[in-house]
Design a protein around this nucleic acid. Sequence first.
DNA 1: GAGTTTGAAACT
DNA 2: CAGTTTCAAACTC
Length: 801
Amino acid sequence: MDTPEKATQIATPLSKFEDSPVFNYINSLSPIKPVKSIPITQTYNSLNFSSLPSIFTSPHVIAHRETRFLKRNNFSDPSKAGSSSENGNKVCTDDGVAMDASQLYDNSAQLQENFDTGVSIEEDSVEPSSDSKFVIELPRALKYDCGSPGCNSTPCSVIEANCVSEQAGTSASVVPFVEKDSENGSFEDEVHLQGASQIEQKKEEVGCDWESLISDAQDLLIFNYHNESEAFKGLIQKSMDPGERFCTSLVTQFSQNDLSGEPKLQMVDSVGYSQQHEMMEGRSAQPGETSELKEINEIEDNLANDDLNNCLTGNPSENVGDEVGVCVQDACKRVPTLHRGMLRRCLDFERVARRKNLNDGSNCSSSIILQSNDETASEDNQLLPLRPTSDSPRCMLPGIGLHLNALTLASQDNKNFKLEIFSRQLSLPTSTSSIHSPESGQEPVQESLTSAAAERDMVPVDDGVPLAEDASQTSAYLVGEESNLNSPKKKRRRMELAGESESACKRCNCKKSKCLKLYCECFAAGVYCIEPCSCQDCFNKPIHEDTVLATRKQIESRNPLAFAPKVIRNSDSVPEQGDESSKTPASARHKRGCNCKKSSCLKKYCECYQGGVGCSINCRCEGCKNTFGRKDGSAIIETEAEQEEEEESEAFEKSGVDPILQRTEISNNEEQNQGSAHPTTPLQFSRPLVQLPFSSKFKPPRSLLSIGSSTAFYTGLNYGKPSILRSQPKFEKRLQTAPNEEMPEILQGNSSPGSGVKTVSPNSKRVSPPNNVLGSSPSRRSGRKLILQSIPSFPSLTPQH
DNA sequence: GAGTTTGAAACT
DNA sequence: CAGTTTCAAACTC
């Protein structure tokens, strides 16, 4: 199966195909001339095809995409799967494959997506390597199908291949080739056969393992998303170079392997999600693969990391902004890069989303849903600079990047665009992950996302917390619901139904505030008002950017935390523990606390309740009955041992809790905590408070600011409450547990009176003794905490570096 | 859809 | 900082 041989084989089948009437017909259809197996330059392939999309985008493509999108939503609908499979089936006519694909698809769209992502990436990387995409692609698809756990991915891979090919314009040719190959019994034939056999096996395996796979989906999802995000990041990076490099490396290796039939192809394919597979199945790289795969993985990881770091962490500000825009554009142009697959996916979704947005008026849900799209927004045409124009969909995740702060900082269009992209990107994974994976999977993602977002955000907007919260919640819910939020009320209703998605898409109804006050949800959320808003005399529009920014500054001068997420979640700040915290009710708390008197904190009047978090010490509510956690919760004085136990339990929870189910989890956790004899309140509250403001290390500045300014809020509010003292110990623990990074920030923040806020004293008011906080937090239990941290769900989830 | 309730935000 | 007013969301009918 050496390369030369392959080439020969490939050439043969191609020629045959070319002769076939089907091929001719296809050719007639597609603008792309079936270049006779002439090795086209990889770059050209991508480039050439990139231009073609229009042709293929025709109804079929669109339909396909939509179907696909629908599929995502309707996992169980077989018919759709079938329809969708039409396109996909083109490529894979194999019954076995098709079956698998449909089934798999139905079983878990997301899982598939994840695989798809991996696959797509692989494809991208692989494509360039092969002189003729066709040959390589088919085998790949097959192999995928045949491939390991990737079986699941098979359908997806196929579909994607189709999509890609369609867009690229190569797909058409591909299909025929496949069939022909089978007919010819050429190399591909073998592949098919093997693939089929393998697929069947896989099917069985899959069938058997499916559940397990699904169960593992969380991990996978996380992984996938992580990968996607990485990939996306890679794309984003102004220099696609890394991606290219990666591709190149892959290609190189691939070529070295001669693209040899199955194993190598599989290897290549697996590269994308090999990690996932490994994770899932525990399956190590295949014999031959191992070394190479490892290398590839390493490269990929490095790239991803680097990319992430560079893009996200790096200098989000200037470089990133430009980079983003550039990257996006480049990405579009550079379809062939390894991220291409992802982009395609995203595009598909995005298109749908955009349509919806356009049609419906921006629906936050759609945007959210498609966050992935945004990720992929980079894709071809769609990557329009989403300037925060009035038209642009504003639905941003509250905490993420859309904050006006970010906007202000990044006044540039590109930057804004980037931010949105990032936010969406970030959110996407979360949403998806959340949906499928009940467990920890999501958290890591969230954390990463949040952290990434935080890092990225030009402005240290919020902690990732809000993002996580919103994203997870909203996204998850919204995904299903998406579009129809036309009327504000309906929207609200949905939000309510959804649970808490509200934050994601705010639509205001302001009449007197001109949407320039915090009364305006849009303004408060840091987003511009959009069509769906029913506001009057709205100044919260890009047109009035100056006014908005000025007002914003003014408000911030008054209260630095004014635009910070109201609900702070620990997750992002603490990578490791973040999971825990995020999961645990305690992790999230309203930054300022509520002041409810009549609603008993059981209605959305209560911001805590609305945010899906329990009331905390900071709350001055009366008759609190917040189902997410009462402020008074029994403040039980716990012994250190108990506290430790709690911590452990929390850590444990962290590992397993689903972000999606956050609320449920929260309630559960609280219950658990209570059950564990730990009064949920004190601990939880204390924690959130501390962590909240300073979720990410990167945000110190903001946290500091917020802290200082926030003092007013935090100081003195809760003095009335008795339980605080007890809580302190836990609080201290929390602090300790919290990563050092956070702690310092917190401490720093605390140094100011404001810090005290979080440190809440046992007595109601956040008398935060900075000293206490400082003293306790960093040093003491850091050891333990470190241990917990060492467990970091996120790292573990990640493909490993 | 109109009116009421509620509590945050803004103001004094 | 406390008290009051304004505002818009949440809620009810």
